[in-house]
Structure formats: C-alpha cells, structure tokens
C-alpha cells in the first residue's frame, strides 16, 4: 500500500474512533466535567450498575431482542420458502411489500405503527408496552430474515427436496433433513441481523413503547437530554468492549472457516 493511502485510512479511522475514545477516557474521569481530567475512578461504573432504570431497560432490551429475533427468524424463513415457490409476479409483489420497512424512513414506520396501536389500544383495552414493542420489532426484523434466506433458497438445488420426498420423507421431515441444513447460513445471519437491529433500535421503539417499557436506547436518549450524566460514558465503554469482542470472535471464526475450506479444496484435488 502506498504511503498516501495509509495516511488516508489512518485519518479516516481517527475521525471514526476519536469520539468513541473521548467517551472511554472520560468514563474514568473523577470530576463530572466534560473537559478537565482530574483523576482516575471507577465510580461511574459502580453508579451505572446501581442505576435501577438502566438495568431494567437493559433487561427489557435483551428480552425484546431475543423474543423478536426468534419469532422473526421462524416467520421470515417460512415466508421466504413460500415466496420462493410463488410465480414471478406475486413473488415480486411480496418482496416489494417486505422491503417497505427497510426502505421507508424509520420515523414513518414508527408513527404508522403508533397510529395502528393507538387505534386498537382504545378499542381492545390494552396499553403501550412490551407487547406493542414486540410487535413493532418483529415487523422491522422479519424483512431482514427474508432477504437473508431468499438467496440461499435460490442457490439450492430444488430436486434435493423432491428426492427426499421420493425416498419416503414427509414434507416436514424433508424440510428439516434437507432444506434447513442447506439454507442454515442465511437463517443464521438473518437471526443475528434482526437481533442486532432490535438491540440497537431507537426510533421505532420511541414511538411504540409505553412509559413502563423503556428499552436501553430510550433510556440513553433521556440521559443525553440531561446536562451531565457521566454514566453514559461508562455505558458506552462497556458497549464498545462487547461489540469489539463479538466482532473479533466472529472475524477469527470466519478466518478459521475459510482456512478449513481451502484445505478441503486442496485435499480434494
């Protein structure tokens, strides 16, 4: 790589990471000030873990992300299989509707679901809360599952499924024994993607949650509205460490997987 390219990337990463490192450094700052570094402390971390609101909203976030991504993965995989068997025109229609939540500005998805929930909350006597949040999250998660599973279905040889049935499998068994293993990478990446989006979502949750069902991003938002809240810095540091760990592990696993595949190819030759 040329020197100028290296310099360019270095500046880019400086821009991307400097703000995050500022947060990390100040999470250990003794004083509440955003500017003066007066001494090293773990106080903000202790305060963070003793902050009931943050801990409850973290619990809410994890619960919603897990349930929403599991339900979305099942619903989306089923839908993708059904769509792939359709004729071209209805399939295109289905995919276009499926993509609406991805294309639409998040705020529009948020307010449209809010209108729906307000309408039914009055008539069916329920309140905004974990239920409405869950419905909203599933709605924006499933499209990603469908988009991840569809290409895997298209790559698959359709005759394997028929062969399994000819050999005596019923459709359900044939699906679990033959189709599912083939499309598993797509199902898995769809699951992870919807889990990550659910954890991270603020805008749609903001419009569909109740006062007793705050998720972590909503709590973070109300914290940033206050003048000084150094617990945010501590929280950012922890989230950063978690994200780095997950990505590094994923990277290592992928590299190992690639190596293994390369070796297999060599052996076959």
């Amino acid at each position: 790589m040329k020197k100028i390219s290296k310099l360019y990337l270095a500046l880019l990463f400086l821009f991307l990471y400097a703000p995050i490192f500022v947060l990390i450094v100040y999470s250990f700052n003794e004083s509440k000030s955003k500017t003066v570094f007066s001494g090293f402390t773990f106080d903000w971390y202790i305060k963070l873990f003793n902050n009931e609101l943050i801990m409850t909203s973290l619990g809410n976030t994890l619960l919603i992300a897990i349930v929403a991504s599991v339900v979305s993965t099942i619903l989306g995989t089923m839908a993708a299989i059904g769509f792939s068997k359709m004729r071209k025109l209805p399939r295109a229609l289905m995919m276009n509707v499926n993509n609406i939540p991805i294309i639409n500005p998040e705020i529009v998805t948020g307010v449209s679901l809010m209108l729906l929930f307000v309408f039914f909350a009055a008539r069916m006597n329920f309140e905004f809360g974990m239920g409405t949040l869950l419905l909203a999250h599933i709605t924006f998660d499933v499209p990603y599952v469908v988009l991840n599973v569809m290409p895997k279905l298209r790559q698959m040889n359709p005759h394997i499924y028929e062969a399994a049935q000819d050999l005596g499998c019923n459709p359900v068994k044939a699906f679990f024994k033959v189709v599912l293993p083939e499309i598993m990478p797509g199902v898995l990446s769809g699951f992870l993607m919807s889990f990550a989006y659910s954890l991270d979502d603020f805008v749609i949750s903001y419009f569909t949650s109740g006062s007793n069902s705050q998720t972590l991003p909503i709590t973070i938002y109300s914290m940033t509205r206050r003048k000084v809240s150094p617990e945010i810095n501590a929280l950012s540091t922890i989230i950063f460490i978690v994200v780095v760990t997950v990505l590094v592990v994923k990277n290592i696993l992928e590299k190992r997987d690639m190596k293994k595949r390369n070796e297999e190819i060599l052996v076959e030759r």
Binding site: L16, Y17, P19, I20, V22, L23, A196, D200, F202, L216, P217, I220, Y221, T224, I232, L235, S236, I239, F240, V243, V246, L247
Partner: peptide, 12 residues
C-alpha cells in the same frame, strides 16, 4: 462504530 448505538456516537 455502526454497532455502537448512534445516540452514544452523537452524544460523543
């Protein structure tokens, strides 16, 4: 950085 919540990035 995309996986850091964007509220935190903006707060920074």
């Amino acid at each position: 950085p995309m996986w850091m919540n964007f509220l935190l990035r903006t707060y920074a």
